[in-house]
Design a protein around this nucleic acid. Structure first.
Lengths: 234, 234
DNA sequence: ACGATAGTTCGCCGGCGAGCGAAACGTTCA
DNA sequence: TGAACGTTTCGCTCGCCGGCGAACTATCGT
């Protein structure tokens, strides 16, 4: 009986060991927005030398948490998958509970809308997921969340590209817990693709150097037409 | 910009460090079925001495992953919450992918039905969650999954205790990923309470010394009446 | 009141690994 | 071709932490 459990003990410890070093944790967190970054930048973000950083990146690579893309004399590292990203967010979450970010603090844009790996999170992300669920546009199945046909229709009505919306139908969504709102929002392939569509349509704009997403006035109006609650001065 | 992220770097590393030691990982895994166990037993399960075990248990306690219950000269340790349990299962999962458990192996009872922390997992768990979702008995809201009134009615019809079912209505469920079926099943307070009800009604029986749950013939019939698929010889 | 048992505290040892500087390697640009 | 730059490899030191045995405390049984 003891033997049945023991293999996973080392698997668990292996992942733990990879996250246990603040320098490696910082590197992973720097990549959680889905970007690819060169080794030197990651070392700088972690506050360590290039040599040490290289060693850490190799361990993360061997551990399957990172992937590389070689381009000339640069090596761009990124998270290996959105499974990994979901894992990091989930792990960074529970310890945050006693130290919730200051509601009046300077992170307001982040709290409003941001990317969580590649999908929409923050107040808008939670609101959108909530609205889609409440109207039955999004339904949970055992393989994840699925966009319904009437939901696709509503998204096109609201102004998203019809072809892009059509391609959302076979995708599966994953529910992802938001650390500022402490509510569910839509992640997974479906969440990523939907977010891309909204950015393409100009509802949201990426801010360089930050995970924050800037909603346009037009985008806000269209989101509200889908049932997303919004008080502009909150 | 760098400062906004850095606190969570240490939070992430702290959790990682707690999991990084195989002995601690073994202790956590030994508790993942939701039981409380005395310090000595956990040390034995981890294959270390009592002194070392005591130190590990204290670190896990300080880190908020464990809780204690003192009874006479015994100290019973358990996971601090089902958040922690969900975390452990989620972490033990991704590394398992290349080494999925042998379908023909001796773990068939575990694959059929088992406790995941305190709620039902395995083929029956996934099937039940799937059936409840498909019939609309269970619906997803942003705070989690909720049992609908017609769902409660159906559960009572199937033979569960009416008072117990009534108490399920205000509870929130969490979707939990199953590592053998790779599909969603129902966890959280709602999942726990529902599983308890089914055990009380004799549909399932706990097996001592294992996480496996043994379904009774009667219980299987009743689950099938709720729409759970079942081929007896699989 | 006594020994037996569960658990913790203390002190010590040994090994893993994080960190850096120096040097080597490969690519880019002039 | 040679200099500059990004990245990796190597060799080294040092601190942290896991492990145990022994002593101590607390509770239970008789």
């Amino acid at each position: 009986m003891n033997d049945a459990v023991s293999p996973s003990r080392y698997q668990l410890a292996e992942i733990g060991a990879l996250l246990a070093e603040p320098a490696r944790a910082a590197m992973l967190l720097a990549l959680i927005d889905g970007t690819s970054r060169p080794a030197g930048e990651l070392a700088r973000a972690a506050g360590i030398g290039a040599a040490t950083g290289s060693a850490h990146l190799h361990r993360l690579l061997d551990g399957g948490l990172l992937a590389v893309h070689v381009q000339g004399r640069h090596r761009y590292y990124r998270l290996a998958s959105d499974d990994v990203a979901a894992l990091i967010e989930a792990l960074a979450l529970p310890r945050t509970r006693p130290v919730l970010p200051d509601p009046t603090g300077g992170d307001r844009p982040l709290r409003t809308a941001r990317t969580c790996y590649r999908h929409l999170a923050g107040r808008l992300g939670v609101g959108l997921c909530d609205a889609l669920l409440q109207r039955g546009y999004l339904q949970t199945a055992s393989e994840g969340m699925r966009l319904q046909h009437d939901g696709a229709h509503a998204l096109v009505q609201a102004g998203l590209d019809a072809v892009a919306v059509q391609s959302l139908l076979p995708l599966a969504g994953r529910s992802c817990l938001d650390w500022t709102e402490r509510r569910l929002h839509l992640g997974g392939p479906l969440g990523v693709a939907l977010t891309d569509s909204m950015i393409d349509a100009g509802w949201l704009r990426r801010r360089s150097g930050s995970r924050a997403l800037q909603p346009s006035d037009d985008g806000l109006r269209r989101l509200m037409s889908l049932g997303v609650p919004w008080e502009s001065d909150r």
